[in-house]
């Protein structure tokens, strides 16, 4: 099994890099997308709120694999239209399509996490914002957001770890992430030990993330 690792170390490293970078990037971009959606879910009423609910339900209600197929193969059906719109470079690339699917999926989950943590902020905080005459923007940016973020950190970390493992589906749409590399190495060696090596990679990656998250959470020492 050690040989399986050493003989293909370049491929493993490449796969690890893709898995780590794609999951991290999609979680970060997904967070930025989720922020306004979660805020709208928590505070707004009317059409905007319906739109946010529709977004969350659509992308949470669809398996990630199905979403990847729809983006990668589904959009491929409209290649001529996409070419005309100048978007084909994006949709012909499995990497970009995979990223898009990951972002749509994780942003729906993260929006719900953000909504939940915004909802747990007590009315006394809102009243204090009013009594101190904070503008809406200041109240959001300097008070609600930091408090909500600190509360959301543990579930967001959980979502990050889930995403690391969910990226393994990318292999099916031909991305050479950890799982994609494992599949090609297996096809050459026909040694099932390959998947143990892949599993250990995932495990180490998740442990590293877990360690980092714990350090980040420790910085929020004011959360009594």
């Amino acid at each position: 099994m050690f040989d399986l690792y050493l003989d293909y170390i370049d491929r493993w490293s490449h796969g690890l890099w893709l898995t780590a970078s794609m999951s991290t990037l999609s979680v970060l971009i997904g967070f930025l997308v989720a922020l306004p959606i979660g805020f709208v879910r928590s505070r707004a009423k009317g059409p905007l709120a319906w739109l946010a609910i529709a977004y969350v339900n659509l992308f949470r209600g669809m398996p990630l694999l199905v979403l990847m197929f729809l983006v990668y193969y589904g959009f491929g059906q409209f290649s001529s239209e996409l070419r005309a719109m100048g978007l084909w470079w994006f949709f012909r690339d499995a990497y970009f399509c995979g990223m898009l699917a990951l972002i749509l999926n994780t942003s729906a989950y993260q929006a719900e996490i953000i909504r939940g943590s915004l909802n747990t902020i007590s009315t006394s905080v809102i009243e204090t914002n009013a009594a101190l005459n904070l503008t809406r923007w200041t109240a959001f940016r300097r008070v609600l957001l930091p408090i909500a973020f600190a509360k959301a950190l543990p579930p967001l970390g959980n979502e990050y770890i889930l995403m690391v493992k969910a990226t393994s589906l990318l292999a099916i749409i031909t991305v050479f992430d950890l799982m994609g590399e494992a599949r090609t190495i297996f096809s050459e060696t026909l040694d099932l030990g390959v998947y143990y090596v892949a599993a250990i990679h995932y495990l180490v990656l998740v442990l590293a993330i877990e360690w980092t998250l714990r350090r980040v959470e420790a910085r929020f020492k004011w959360m009594a």
Partner: peptide
Amino acid sequence: GMCFQHFNLYPHLTALENCTLSLIYT
């Protein structure tokens, strides 16, 4: 100015930052 029964200090800001927040931003 108002003081509340449960103080309502912002938990994520230091004593000083609690005092300067509305001075700086409002």
